[in-house]
Design a protein around this nucleic acid. Structure first.
Lengths: 293, 293
DNA sequence: GAGTGGTCTAGACCACCAT
DNA sequence: TGGTGGTCTAGACCACTCG
């Protein structure tokens, strides 16, 4: 989305020409435009549409990635942005917080926010994305095949991760993932009984289990990741076409639903040189290290 | 910090017995205690102390990690927490947002927040921490030695990462990092001229450059990380005591200061089996993958 | 001292979930 | 239908930065 006017007016009692978002992409020079005293704003109804602060955030993101403010440039002050977008300062702050989380801008008391990346720089629009969605967003065609779907009983680690009792029934799925037809990753996922039953009932050529599961109301909203190195075993070597014992980039992941119930415990092994993991961290939180994986 | 009473009363016009934070650790059973009508609260002065929302967050964190609410338990409603802590709902929400970022709780419209981890589970108290601080927080003694500090000129990648011109002067530092005396990681850092000059002036046995730099006003507030695999070169092999060509866990990192100026571009290579990287992701943002590292 | 982001309060309405 | 978190507004004061 671009600068302005491409959003529907959703407010009421507001008398801006049209389009609910002020033009910021074309704004770095402004600061003129006499401000007629505004009638007190009443909260706008968002009525089922995109939250206002996300619209503001996306507009600003567009302006930043389009290079409207060079790298290292300072953003307008919060009050100024609030005026331009005709929203409250709180909403602007919420939008800016989102951009900060994505590592697009800094934030410090006393000085204006600074644009971190640059026009050319890839925006790490991170998300809790499945392999499938991630690949598609890159314009790559994700593929793969399900090697096996087996019912079984949880071992110690699976039980701990899925927060069930050892010996409880689970389903194990082994899949090979490809990108543009080339093998990239071997995925070993353990599902608790209920979720696994759904997976087992899907056609073996299902590209994205997570998308299908979402249709059944199984949502993945949180995930905890651990990244390290693991040697390829015989299966890995056969499927990925590498040497047994070769070092692979390993991601272990436990996903949970909104109720906090673990819905997936997965171990993915990537062929070296195919992918890298990226993360952004600020003074508060983001990436950790851990001893003895 | 624990439940209550270990904080100084900082408010005014408030008539709670003493201690500014209500006892939540001992609260899961409450919900009784007749509420006398409160006089309207006025914003409390934080006057140079820890922000209120952080106190609330830390108290809740303590309650959660202490297991006051079992894993999967639901937290009290926002309004209820606001009453207990005698703060506004906004402040409670700010505190809860911090816990959510750390992956301690979920959050979904319509239902109470759910505790994610469990009593036993290690809290991934992630931070933008230097190797030194990270090691110390684990009770490990960080060590190492500086192999070389060399002035030089920026190559293409360094220039791009540090946002300077190719050929500009830089300092390159090669260090070996140890944990309990054992080699763990080789760190290759490139500093821009000004920062590098400070580093070059420090004694060669300096354990933490970042701590020393902080004293000179050079702060690391943001960092962008990329994690993948790289083979050990001759230096790596010699310093880490591994085979040349052996796969190492590589972290590349660009750190910036509050003004958005890059202050460090580093490439760290960890011996396999020594550390793992952890991250938490929610529906919005956290960990990314990237093609072709 | 002026400008700017950080914190806090108060109140309102809405969307979603469970009952 | 009632409870709960999500969004939005308005106003206030404070801490920090810089000229």
């Amino acid at each position: 989305m671009g600068g302005s006017g491409d959003r529907v007016e959703r407010g009421r009692r507001r008398s801006r020409p049209h389009g609910s978002l002020g033009p910021v992409n074309e704004a770095p020079q402004a600061a003129d435009a006499p401000r007629e005293p505004q009638e007190p704003r009443t909260p706008r109804r968002t009525s089922g549409r995109t939250p206002l602060y996300l619209e503001v955030a996306e507009d600003l993101r567009g302006a930043i990635t389009a290079g409207a403010y060079g790298s290292g440039a300072r953003l307008p002050a919060e009050d100024e942005l609030a005026r331009r977008y005709a929203v409250s300062r709180g909403t602007v702050r919420q939008a800016l917080a989102a951009l900060r989380t994505d590592g697009l801008i800094t934030s410090r008391r006393g000085i204006r926010r600074v644009v971190l990346g640059g026009p050319g720089e890839e925006n790490a629009a991170t998300e809790l994305r499945s392999f499938t969605r991630w690949a598609r967003s890159l314009g790559q065609e994700p593929g793969g095949r399900t090697v096996s779907v087996d019912p079984g009983t949880a071992d110690g680690e699976e039980a701990e991760q899925l927060r069930i009792a050892a010996g409880d029934p689970v389903y194990r799925v082994l899949r090979l993932r490809t990108l543009a037809g080339e093998p990239v990753m071997v995925e070993r996922t353990t599902y608790p009984r209920a979720v696994g039953a759904l997976v087992a009932g899907m056609p073996p050529d299902t590209v994205s289990y997570s998308e299908q599961l979402a249709r059944h109301g199984v949502l993945f909203t949180d995930a905890h990741h651990t990244i390290d190195i693991a040697p390829a075993d015989a299966d890995d070597a056969r499927l990925l076409g590498c040497r047994a014992g070769e070092a692979l980039l390993r991601e272990r992941r436990r996903s949970t639903d909104p109720a906090g119930t673990p819905v997936e415990w997965s171990q993915d092994r990537y062929l070296p040189g195919t992918v890298a993991f990226t993360a952004h961290s600020t003074a508060a939180s983001a990436l950790g290290r851990r001893l003895r994986p």
